[in-house]
């Protein structure tokens, strides 16, 4: 009903801003980020810690671009556009920093279950993680004391490798795969769940995602909503079902069917995507762009599916 619509929506009030990206003029609404301006132009900018549904933390630095007049490169995911900005996304400086960020991560983190794009970028940017040397053996990262460390044996490259944490029936935490993108902390905290069961602890190369003093999840504030799993870009956080199938070499997305349905538990209307392999539900997600969930679910929607396969 047109009479119900406000005279002008906030979107209509947003002025347009013109800037230059890679030599081409681009016009985007005021308040957009450089990343959005690049995407509007069809320019691919790699991102790791960025997610549309979370406030940008700009920590991975893979999305950096060169902004004329700025001494250092700037993170495109969080920098708002300003009129007259001149941005370069493919200069030598940009390519070097992106290559090095990818190389530093690939040399220290197990990216075997990361999004496919990550591997494509590693190739495209020519990152060579092997030049940092063979990996040092896994260490006890949970007790690292800020400001102190033992350097690895000469010739070996320190990594974040450590024992998989499996302390509950719902999901495992394999922090050997953690790139410290902060997404799980955001999702667990004020961006989605408001549970605050995990935070970044320690500092420097020893920084890690942790509960208080590394207590097991059942002793923590975790409510098993799994919203951390939903935002994890590397598979560090994973359903037990997926983890075990992978361990058995049985995980096969080609054999999986994804069925979209509505959660049967309450009346909110969350959409579920049931990932089914061999007639068993192996994972539950929710579409990121669903206006009820933004990808988030509660413990029932996320993990309460055993009844559907006779296990309830």
């Amino acid at each position: 009903m047109t009479t119900m619509a406000p005279a002008s929506t906030p979107v209509a009030l947003r002025r347009n801003v013109e800037l230059t990206v890679d030599g081409e003029p681009v016009t985007v609404p005021e308040g957009s980020t450089i990343l959005e301006a690049c995407r509007a132009q069809g320019i691919e900018v790699p991102t790791l810690c960025y997610l549309e549904t979370l406030a940008p933390v700009n920590v991975c630095r893979v999305c950096v671009v060169e902004l004329e007049g700025s001494r250092a490169l700037v993170p495109s995911c969080s920098r708002p556009v300003a009129a007259g900005m001149v941005v370069h996304t493919a200069s030598e400086r940009v390519r070097t920093s992106r290559r090095m960020v990818l190389e530093l991560l690939a040399s220290s983190v197990d990216l075997s279950t990361a999004d496919g794009d990550v591997h494509r970028w590693i190739d495209e940017y020519g990152a060579r993680p092997e030049r940092h040397g063979p990996s040092a053996p896994p260490g006890d990262r949970d007790h690292a004391h800020a400001g102190h460390h033992e350097p690895p044996e000469v010739g070996l490259a320190a990594t974040v490798a450590q024992v998989v944490k499996r302390d509950n029936d719902q999901y495992v935490r394999d922090y050997s795969k953690c790139i410290l993108c902060y997404k799980c902390v955001e999702a667990c905290g004020e961006e989605a769940q408001n549970t605050f069961a995990i935070a970044v602890a320690g500092r420097g190369f020893d920084a890690r995602i942790s509960t208080e003093l590394d207590v097991a999840l059942p002793d923590s504030a975790c409510v098993y909503c799994g919203n951390c799993i939903a935002v994890c870009p590397t598979g560090a956080l994973m359903f037990v079902s997926e983890h075990d199938l992978r361990a058995q070499g049985e995980w096969d997305e080609d054999r999986q069917e994804v069925t979209r349905t509505v959660c049967p538990y309450c009346g909110v209307g969350c959409n579920l995507e049931l990932h089914v392999q061999d007639n068993r539900i192996v994972k539950v997600t929710s579409p990121l762009d669903h206006d009820v969930t933004s990808g988030n679910l509660c413990v029932k929607g996320r993990f309460g599916f055993e009844f559907a396969q006779g296990g309830g």
Partner: peptide
């Protein structure tokens, strides 16, 4: 190495 806060990849790693 000891004083980096660990927030961004270039400095942390």
């Amino acid at each position: 190495r000891d004083e980096s806060c660990g927030q961004c990849v270039p400095c942390r790693v």
